[in-house]
Amino acid sequence: MSEFAGKTALVTGATAGIGRAVARQLAARGADVVVHGRDAQRGASLVEELGGRARFVAADLSDASQVLRLAAEAGPVDILVNNAGIYDFAPTPATTAADFDRHLAINTRAPFLLVGALVPAMIERGGGVVVNMSSTSATMAAPVGAVYGASKAALELLTKSWATEFGASGVRVNGVSPGPTRTDGTERMIGDNLDAFAQQINVRGRIGDPDEIADVVVFLAGERSSYINGTVVVAHGGERSLLPV
């Protein structure tokens, strides 16, 4: 497939989970992919899998200077997928100032800096696409994980603001809000109770697959979604919300 032939995509947090699925799908559809992560071994493994359509750039997104270095090393990109994120579902009294700052730095500030660094060149070239990975935690209150939800709620507002700021210049900005998805991170967090957890909160009775979320990201990155801008697409299989916000 050649839907993205001649396009370059930067996918943050691409060495595992949803990010890895997104990188695979973009490469399979003809894009050259800049794979971001922190683990060089996993990055090299993915680059090898994707062949000549990928290169790896390591960066710690909690460090603003490394975020800007990532943007510089990525070079001109047509598609920016802000996928990298951290989550700690701790109660507020157990969340330290350092925990708070790290969530905001990685989940909110890093996308902000990457957009600021890369979108001007997209505009100069006539257009581009940004897709931000949010979470249903941004819109559903829970007794734990307030700082994670807040960081993603901020990203959703940035998504809509950027769509307004850059839309007339040819850059579309959208988001994807997944429910619980089967990744190494969610399996470590929830453990053997993952399927039971999914049955409890999801009307479909199962947890999502990374490729199901990547399908939505790739759709938003392509021309088939050319009239979609400033939207956050929810992909949670019918998640039950007790406290919508």
Rank of each mutant, 00 (worst) to 15 (best):
T139A: 13
T139F: 15
M140Y: 12
M140R: 14
M140K: 10
M140W: 13
A141K: 11
P143F: 09
P143R: 14
V144S: 08
V144H: 12
G145D: 02
A146N: 10
A146Y: 11
A146Q: 05
V147I: 14
V147E: 04
V147C: 07
V147S: 08
Y148N: 03
Y148E: 02
G149R: 10
A150E: 06
A150V: 14
S151K: 10
S151R: 10
K152S: 03
K152M: 07
A153T: 04
A154P: 07
A154Y: 08
L155M: 11
E156S: 06
E156V: 09
E156Y: 08
E156D: 15
L158I: 00
T159Q: 05
K160Y: 02
S161F: 12
S161I: 06
W162G: 03
W162F: 12
A163C: 05
E165I: 06
F166V: 04
F166K: 08
F166T: 01
F166I: 08
S169W: 11
G170C: 07
G170Y: 09
G170P: 07
R172Q: 03
R172C: 05
V173C: 05
V173R: 07
N174I: 05
N174F: 09
N174G: 06
N174T: 09
N174K: 09
G175A: 15
V176W: 02
S177Q: 12
G179N: 02
P180Q: 00
R182M: 12
R182P: 02
T183P: 05
T183H: 08
G185W: 13
E187N: 06
I190W: 11
G191M: 09
G191Q: 07
D192G: 15
D192Q: 13
D192K: 14
A196Y: 02
A196R: 14
F197V: 01
A198I: 02
A198C: 15
Q200P: 00
Q200G: 01
I201C: 02
N202T: 14
R204M: 14
R204Y: 13
R204D: 00
R204I: 03
R204P: 00
G205T: 06
R206P: 00
I207R: 02
G208D: 01
G208A: 13
D209K: 15
D209A: 14
P210C: 08
D211I: 07
E212C: 08
I213C: 02
I213L: 03
A214R: 12
V216S: 00
V217I: 11
V217A: 04
V217Y: 11
F219W: 14
F219A: 01
F219N: 00
L220Y: 01
E223A: 15
R224T: 00
R224D: 12
R224Q: 12
S226G: 10
I228P: 03
I228K: 07
N229V: 04
N229F: 05
G230S: 09
T231N: 10
V232R: 05
V234W: 01
A235L: 02
A235E: 01
G238Q: 10
G238R: 09
R240F: 14
R240N: 06
L242A: 15
L242K: 08
L243S: 14
